[in-house]
Structures are given as structure tokens and as C-alpha cells.
């Protein structure tokens, strides 16, 4: 509770520190506009046109529905990975055999290209929600699993001994000794898992469904509607940046204050 208040209190100062980031984004948009002037509207529509398309899309009921569909799939997939990845990773970390055995499996999961998973999922589940959600889970689960596993594997034996010497009761041992350490590993894994989920969901939709933002992107491609395609990209990037910089980064700063 206290840390939540602190996050909110530090938030304005954090936002104020974002001027550099905004400047670099504006610079990027300037380059984009230069690209438009060289290559023309069909290849690279100007930022202004893109944002105009974006505004009209956001007022369109059907576009909002597509976004909601994508959001649902991404959060379902990510939620499943978060739950099972964290839980299984923590458990595996506590047993040497389990962590040893899970390593090659994780390597397989990470090493297999998501596009191959999509093909398999299309065969197994057909064209629909399950295929997309499955692909998202398969892509983001190992990241979270490994984070949680590392968290428990690297618990400090010296601190455990210290906790024993003071006779800490189990709930204090968990919340004061184990949890902060594990969380410092799991939380960054959640963040990268989320980024992964958001990218994979679009790709899976583009190939395997007829609705959602990925499917809209496929339609825009077939109609050579570059402004719409770019506007969709802006929505994807914008939402990811919002989640990462406005929600997650302030939390990360607060919980990792003690790190050198």
C-alpha cells in the first residue's frame, strides 16, 4: 500500500523526466516525414495522413471491436502464461531435478520459431481464438517460466541461515526474505513476456483469423491501404509504450530501488 502511494507520488517527476523520450520520438517522426517526401504517399504515407487515418479509425465502432478482440486474446494468453509460468517456474526452482529437467524443454520452446507454432496450432485448433491464444502462451510462457526459475534458484543461502538464526516465522521468511528476491527476477520476466505476447498476437491473427487487429492488417495489405496499415502499427506501438512506460516502468523503479 505504501509503495503504491510512493509510486503515485513520484509519478509526476517521472513524467517530467520523459522530455528526452518525447524529443527522440518527434525526431523519429521528422525522419518519417522526410521518407514520405522522398518515396511518396503510396510507399510511406506522411505522419499527418497516418494520424488523420488513425483518428477516423478510432471513431469507427468496428475498429474498436477489432481492438477489443485482440486485447482479449493477448490478455488471455498472457494471463495463462503469467499464472502457469510463474507457478511452475517457482516450483521447478525449488527442486534441483525439476530445474535440470526443464532446461532442455525451455530451450525447445524458445528455439522453435513462433511461426511454426502458428502452423501447428492452425492444424490442431482451426482458425479461431484458440490458435491465437495457444501461440501467445507458447511464446511468452518460457520467458516467464525461466524468470521465476532463476528467481528461486538464486535464493541466497546465507540470508536463509540468517533468517533461521533469528527464528523468523514462515510468513516473515516468505515476505521479507524470499519474495523480494524472487519478485526482482519475475517482474522483468513479466514485462518481456507481455511485450512478446503483444507482438505474437498480431502475427497469429494475421495468419490464422478473420478478425482482430492482425486480420485488419492483412486486409489493409491486400488493398494496398498503407495509411491504415501504418495507423494500425501506431496503435500497436502506442499501446505497448503506454503499458511499458506509464504503468510498468514506475512500478519497476519503486520495487528495484534497493538494487545497485
Amino acid at each position: 500500500m505504501n509503495s503504491l502511494l510512493k509510486i503515485l507520488k513520484d509519478f509526476p517527476a517521472y513524467l517530467w523526466s520523459g522530455w528526452g523520450a518525447i524529443a527522440s520520438i518527434l525526431l523519429f517522426i521528422a525522419f518519417w516525414d522526410a521518407g514520405n517526401q522522398i518515396y511518396g504517399d503510396l510507399v510511406l504515407p506522411s505522419p499527418l495522413e497516418t494520424f488523420k487515418t488513425l483518428m477516423s479509425m478510432l471513431q469507427d465502432e468496428s475498429v474498436i471491436t477489432e481492438i477489443k478482440v485482440t486485447l482479449y486474446r493477448a490478455s488471455m494468453g498472457f494471463g495463462i502464461s503469467l499464472l502457469f509460468g510463474s507457478a511452475l517456474g517457482l516450483i521447478a526452482g525449488f527442486f534441483a531435478t525439476a530445474s535440470m529437467m526443464s532446461r532442455p524443454i525451455v530451450t525447445i520452446l524458445v528455439g522453435m520459431p513462433p511461426i511454426a507454432w502458428i502452423v501447428l496450432a492452425m492444424i490442431w485448433f482451426g482458425m479461431g481464438d484458440e490458435t491465437v491464444i495457444f501461440t501467445v502462451v507458447v511464446a511468452s510462457f518460457p520467458i516467464i517460466f525461466v524468470g521465476a526459475l532463476q528467481g528461486t534458484r538464486t535464493l541466497d543461502g546465507d540470508l536463509k541461515e540468517m533468517a533461521d538464526s533469528f527464528g523468523l516465522p514462515w510468513h516473515m521468511k516468505f515476505f521479507d526474505v524470499y519474495f523480494p528476491h524472487i519478485f526482482s527476477y519475475v517482474f522483468p520476466a513479466w514485462v518481456s513476456g507481455l511485450g512478446m505476447a503483444w507482438k505474437i498476437v498480431i502475427m497469429a491473427e494475421l495468419l490464422a483469423t478473420s478478425d482482430g487487429m492482425g486480420a485488419s492488417l492483412a486486409v489493409a495489405r491486400s488493398q494496398l491501404d498503407t495509411p491504415t496499415a501504418l495507423a494500425l502499427v501506431v496503435i500497436m506501438i502506442g499501446s505497448l509504450m503506454f503499458i511499458e512506460y506509464i504503468i510498468l516502468e514506475p512500478i519497476k523503479r519503486e520495487v528495484e530501488l534497493w538494487r545497485s
Binding site: 546465507d158 540470508l159 541461515e161 533469528f166 523468523l168 516473515m172 521479507d176 523480494p180
Partner: peptide, 22 residues
């Protein structure tokens, strides 16, 4: 202990208070 074995995520006072809270 020979080493300090402080909890890195707790400040000075919270570290000292650990045994008392236990």
C-alpha cells in the same frame, strides 16, 4: 555473522527491526 547478511531490499531500520518483529 562474519559478513553483514543484511536484507538488500530493506532499509537500515527495517533490517535492525527484523529480529524484534520475529
Amino acid at each position: 555473522f562474519q559478513e553483514d547478511r543484511l536484507l538488500p531490499w530493506k532499509n537500515v531500520i527495517d533490517n535492525i527491526a527484523l529480529g524484534l518483529l520475529a
